[in-house]
């Protein structure tokens, strides 16, 4: 079965991103496909490569990036939510005249249409939020 996942909250503050990750791992282990993980609202903060959690804590961003690298999961950050919160990729950096970019490996920035499309083309859409 094809799952799409929606993550509405940022890392470390709320369990939503952790729950979404654990669900994704279990779904992949069961032989299902995760067609897309869409990060919305504060959820886009999961895609910053500049986070440095303490060594004895989980690294939420790296876990997601590994899922993209190892399993080909499409990690999409909502562009409007990113712009409001200072999450910037190379393209956005140039377009908006910023002096840095901070998107982690495996994540890409795109529009809300990607969420709708994921809902349409997957068998199930599962939302994790507050």
């Amino acid at each position: 079965m094809k799952f799409a996942i929606l993550v509405n909250e940022g890392p470390y503050q709320h369990q939503a991103s952790d729950s979404a990750y654990q669900f994704s791992v279990a779904a992949l282990e069961a032989g299902h496909e995760i067609s897309r993980v869409f990060f919305y609202h504060d959820g886009v903060n999961n895609g910053s490569r500049l986070t440095t959690p303490p060594q004895d804590d989980r690294h939420i961003q790296k876990r997601w990036s590994a899922l993209a690298a190892d399993k080909g999961v499409d990690l999409v950050l909502c562009v409007a939510a990113c712009q409001r919160r200072g999450l910037v990729d190379e393209g956005e950096m140039k377009r908006n005249g910023k002096d840095a970019s901070n998107i982690a490996e495996g994540f890409r920035i795109s529009g809300l249409g990607q969420l709708i499309e994921a809902g349409i083309e997957s068998d199930r859409l599962i939302t994790f939020g507050d």
């Binding site: 562009v79 795109s110 529009g111 809300l112 249409g113 709708i116 499309e117 809902g119 349409i120 083309e121």
Partner: peptide
């Protein structure tokens, strides 16, 4: 992105 047309041919009921 905001103008993209969906050509996937699937129509779903979304609430």
């Amino acid at each position: 992105m905001e103008d993209e047309e969906y050509t996937g041919g699937i129509e779903k009921k979304i609430i």
